[in-house]
Write a protein that binds this DNA or RNA. Structure first.
Length: 104
DNA sequence: AAGTTGACTTTCG
DNA sequence: TCGAAAGCCAACT
């Protein structure tokens, strides 16, 4: 069994993720920044545990790639929401320049 | 208290 | 522009 993040931290993360509008995305670092921390990896851990209840695909890496191992599932949501994508030879990536969402 | 792990980020070559 | 290495933060043993 892998470690489960604290409920307080998790709840804060889920609130931020749920606030991301369709067609937009935020990086793990951005979500952590909203919480006043730089724990981008901790955010990922929260998604792994509680991400089922939120649009986890709207939280991606700073490089524009979706969550490792979930790129295929995220792609379906991106195409459905009209999220700006950059299709490459190797795969795809989100156009952060257009899709990045700023809270506030 | 110290060590390990992770759906990460940034810097350097 | 891409890949490797170091850096960081939170949580568990």
């Amino acid at each position: 069994m892998r470690p489960a993040p604290a409920a307080d931290f998790a709840e804060a993360v889920l609130e931020v993720v749920a606030a991301i509008p369709p067609g937009r995305v935020m990086t793990y670092g951005d979500v952590a920044a909203v919480l006043g921390s730089r724990a981008a990896r901790a955010v990922g851990n929260v998604m792994a545990w509680y991400g089922s209840d939120v649009p986890w695909w709207r939280v991606i890496r700073a490089s524009g790639h979706a969550a490792a191992g979930h790129e295929d599932r995220a792609l379906e949501h991106f195409r459905a929401e009209g999220t700006p994508l950059l299709t490459t030879d190797d795969g795809y990536r989100v156009n952060l320049r257009l899709a990045r969402h700023s809270p506030g």
